[in-house]
Write a protein that binds this DNA or RNA. Sequence first.
DNA 1: GCCAACGTTGGC
DNA 2: GCCAACGTTGGC
Length: 140
Amino acid sequence: MPKSHHLVKSEPGTYSFADLMRDEKTVWDGIRNPTARNNLRQMTKGDLVLFYHTGNEKQIVGIAKVVKPAYPDPSADEGDWLALDLAPVKALAKPITLAQIKSDKKLLHLPLVKMSRLSVMPIGPVEFEYIVGKLGGTKL
DNA sequence: GCCAACGTTGGC
DNA sequence: GCCAACGTTGGC
């Protein structure tokens, strides 16, 4: 399966990228939205994931990777929900704010802009590279 | 505090 | 099966 790129959101007060760096690995569970769940299902081992902070920050702060693809969410009592395991790759040299994304024609179409409730979404390879490399000033 | 953009629920 | 009302999330 070809590699894909995604973006996940987290409230930094609940679980931040710094927490992921500290833990070295985490279970990404608790997703209760069908669209987000379907996106989780598309992610395979080794896929890179942008890590976005919601709330006061509203910015992409780091890159993570999938270390274990989707499996039934252990935190779900009922229903068809998925979790997966994430590990940190590196923090972005320069975080990219939502305002910056909204003001950039190349990124204006990202689901992040209009579908504010969606917590897991695909990102095209071109956009991913543009965000990480050009805007984020980060080399993988 | 309000609004936008969903998803869910329940009456019909 | 439709859709109005309500709930939720996240941004402004």
